[in-house]
Design a protein around this nucleic acid. Structure first.
Lengths: 189, 189
DNA sequence: GTCTATAATTTGATAGAC
DNA sequence: GTCTATCAAATTATAGAC
């Protein structure tokens, strides 16, 4: 029985995400992706014309998955504290499971050498994270200045990205937990 | 007049550092380095046999420069607060000047796809940063548990790396400053 | 120490059969 | 939609003249 066409495309972006999370945009090739999926590199090109197209699609899929997991920041059925724990857990999950970096963290570090279309998608990740966190933080500190809310939101993402980076490099997930303890003080104070 | 041999080697590692800070280990080639320096790629190989050798040398040079700029964390002529400001300034400098990432931050993000010798040099960066910060923090909170000192030291580096990453990607140095404001609370409290 | 020349491999990408 | 076959270019790296 033949797999659906969309299935192959899906497996291609999944393989691209995995490869990029390990070695960045310049750290993978069409042939590696093809081997991962079990097709030939010409088939990868059939689904994604250029490497930039493939990378951009992988980032879009990653960001959508990330934001879907976060859900509505104004959901009255969840407390701000629960939402912040959820946010941190999302970054922690792939680190403790596979010592994996955040896809957008990896690509952000090589932003200067990235295709502009790919770089734009990566910036979307940070923008949507900021907007989601601002909504959550507005609930916990309704009287804070917008600039302060924005600063704390950016700090939360930046801190978690840095914690991921450091823990990933040192191979110590405990580093991530150390940082989370300190981050909690920022978000509550 | 001919430039000294060591001069060419120095200019080669400098070019490699610059290229890697933009695009990571897989984001540069010997020919690009050669063109930057004004020699042929065979001459680059004369000074550094392999790409791994060149990358490792660039990291060692970067780390030595970084630690030299920090100096002695126990220097009685400088207060802990001054030292922490110096530490933050060191990360800020190349960001505001050229929107440049930290070399070891870039390489840490692609650690999984890095040659083991290069990866080891990158880990040295984080280890020496931690040791320096632990010495400084011991002075400002002499009664804190070693685990807490270590946690705060790791958090400081991780937070600054994340701030650099985010600001670099978004092209907004203000993001870095927002994070620094919050970081100050961690290091003082 | 730098060069020319080149080997050996890999890269992103395309043409065209099935 | 997948394949074989291939291209043109780029890659790391080496051999040997000067």
């Amino acid at each position: 029985m033949m797999a659906k066409a969309t299935d192959t495309a899906e497996r291609i972006v999944a393989a691209a995400e995995r490869r990029m999370r390990d070695g960045g945009f310049h750290g993978f090739s069409f042939r590696e992706i093809a081997a991962d999926v079990g097709v030939k590199s010409a088939s990868v090109h059939h689904h994604f014309a250029t490497k930039q197209d493939l990378a951009a699609a992988a980032v879009r899929r990653y960001v959508d998955r990330h934001m879907s997991a976060l859900g509505d920041p104004d959901d009255p059925g969840r407390t701000p504290d629960e939402l912040i724990v959820l946010y941190i857990d999302l970054f922690r999950h792939d680190l403790v499971k596979d010592c994996q970096m955040c896809l957008c963290g990896v690509l952000a570090s090589e932003a200067a050498a990235l295709d502009s279309a790919v770089a734009r998608e990566v910036r979307v990740f940070f923008d949507r994270n900021r907007a989601w966190l601002e909504a959550v933080l507005k609930r916990v500190m309704p009287n804070a200045r917008p600039g302060e809310i924005r600063g704390k939101a950016l700090t939360a993402t930046a801190t978690l990205e840095g914690a991921l980076l450091t823990a990933h490099c040192l191979g110590e997930t405990e580093v991530f937990e150390s940082v989370v303890v300190e981050l909690a003080k920022i978000l509550s104070g």
